[in-house]
Nucleic acid binder design. Structure first.
Length: 482
DNA sequence: CTTGCCGGGAT
DNA sequence: ATCCCGGCAAG
């Protein structure tokens, strides 16, 4: 892995260059004209010779860091010759090409960091949530009042912010304060800056005390599942995730940040989402994950199930309002959500064994907000982090998966070929086919090997010039077809 | 291992 | 379009 630029006179270039060949392509079967003769065409007195002995990454790097400036890179010089130590090296040199091809994946990943925690986070396990939240807070060096660490007592039903129950005015005010401070605070906070941020603690504490599950990720589509105790968990502030924020870049980062902010505070005016947003109503009663599509429905649910009111009476004193929250659900965001979640850390292990039901925009955004925990989560959560979705694109995907429309994986798999083969490729591939429309025909179209002897067999390598062109080109033999 | 040839890069 | 080759699957 080294590269060097050899400055040489034109005449010298020929003698060393061996491959100075302007009229003939280097090839096994080409007649080679002595390079010397060709070199006489060299117009300039001097040209650069770019000799590479391996990959070009180092070369590029060196060029960048050197004070000599650029201009020696392949393709830059006015006249240059690329000498390769072998055919393979050409491929290695092409690492830029590889990067280029892989870039869509990368873009996808970095653009939409929405990793693992999102899906693998066990949102139905409040104990774990509390644990995570506490550990996260502890990691921030904050003193968390003991009272806050305790799960919310069952008597305390968190009231959604967009309701306005009397008696919660103080918290509303605090929340407003929080909003204000947030709006003027830098969104991206370094880990070190967090503990010293005066407003940070304040609003986080406020949030911890006043926000309920609708912004904390304690949300589930399986509204009927009450087997697992669930308590609205403290909100997971986004500045809790310096790693995440730092790993995103530019517009995407700010977009995600603002997006999560937007959802964290239930901004009634979706800034970005224009597509099929659906308002759902979620019961906030402890251990109840009920989600209904109508307010009357959720009110009735609360009245009858939690308040013990008469089921056939539609009378409502408004108390139910305290126990449910509106949530916005993007009904068609499954695909987008999945694709957005696509990978940022190609090194992570396999995908979740079970893919969660439709990822709503809501949950996705929440997860963005929750994202701060990711670094902690990575060790606490199971290996089901979907951040490994990128593994979809491995050359082996179609080997592990049943024949299906996955051939396209090849084009983007180059950089990932060394990934250890995950045992869950099938599931992954399935997920992938969900998100990426298959554009190519199924792999089954490969022509079965014929019985007839082909040119190669008939003539042998030593008479390769007698082969049909297809055989020479390693294509399907045209002479001895089946 | 060898062989056939697909997919894709280089020119 | 032509030529070439990496790499895969089948044998």
């Amino acid at each position: 892995m080294e590269s060097k630029c050899i400055l040489e006179k034109s005449s010298v270039g020929a003698s060393i260059g061996g491959v100075v060949d302007f009229n003939y392509r280097p090839g096994r079967y080409n007649n080679r004209v002595p390079a010397m003769e060709k070199s006489s065409y060299t117009p300039g007195p001097i040209f650069y010779k770019y000799v590479t002995d391996g990959g070009s990454t180092a070369a590029v790097k060196n060029e960048r860091t050197s004070s000599a400036g650029s201009g020696h890179l392949p393709g830059v010089g006015v006249l240059q010759d690329v000498e390769k130590t072998g055919p393979r090296d050409q491929k290695d040199i092409g690492s830029t090409g590889i990067l280029k091809r892989a870039s869509p994946t990368l873009c996808l990943g970095t653009g939409r960091q929405l990793p693992g925690s999102s899906i693998s986070l066990d949102i139905r396990n409040p104990g774990k949530q509390a644990e995570l939240a506490n550990s996260f807070r502890a990691a921030q060096g904050q003193n968390v009042p003991q009272a806050e660490r305790q799960p919310l007592p069952s008597s305390h039903i968190p009231v959604p912010r967009n309701r306005n129950p009397s008696g919660h005015a103080d918290k509303e005010v605090m929340a407003a304060t929080v909003l204000t401070s947030l709006s003027t605070s830098p969104l991206v906070l370094g880990p070190s800056s967090v503990p010293t941020e005066p407003t940070s603690k304040t609003w986080k504490d406020v949030l911890s005390a006043s926000y309920s599950s609708s912004t904390s990720g304690n949300w589930s589509w399986d509204a009927s599942d009450q087997s697992v105790p669930s308590t609205p968990s403290p909100p997971l502030s986004k500045d809790a995730n310096p790693g995440f924020l730092h790993s995103t870049q530019g517009d995407d980062a700010s977009e995600d940040v603002s997006e999560s902010t937007h959802f964290m505070f239930e901004d009634p005016i979706p800034r970005k989402r224009k597509n099929s947003m659906k308002v759902m109503f979620k019961c906030l009663w402890k251990n109840c994950e009920k989600v209904l599509s109508t307010s009357s429905g959720i009110q009735r649910h609360i009245r009858t199930v939690h308040l013990g009111r008469n089921s056939d009476s539609d009378y409502s004193d408004g108390e139910e309002d305290f126990y449910y929250s509106e949530i916005e659900v993007n009904m068609d965001s499954l695909t987008e959500g999945l694709s957005s979640l696509t990978p940022t850390s190609p090194t992570t292990a396999g995908p979740p064994p079970i893919f969660p039901p439709p990822l709503s925009d809501m949950s996705r955004s929440e997860l963005i907000g929750v994202n701060g925990l990711q670094s902690h989560l990575s060790s606490l959560l199971s290996q089901s982090a979907p951040s490994a979705l990128c593994h979809i694109r491995t050359d082996h995907a179609y080997q592990a998966a049943a024949p299906g429309p996955v051939t396209h994986v090849r084009t983007v798999s180059i950089g990932e070929k060394r990934q250890p083969a995950a045992s869950t490729h099938t599931a992954v591939t399935k997920s992938h086919t969900l998100t990426t429309p298959a554009t190519k025909s199924a792999p089954g179209t490969r022509k079965p090997r014929g019985e007839a002897k082909k040119c190669r067999k008939v003539y042998g390598m030593e008479k390769r010039d007698m082969w049909c062109t297809a055989c020479r080109w390693k294509k399907a033999c045209q002479r001895f077809t089946d």
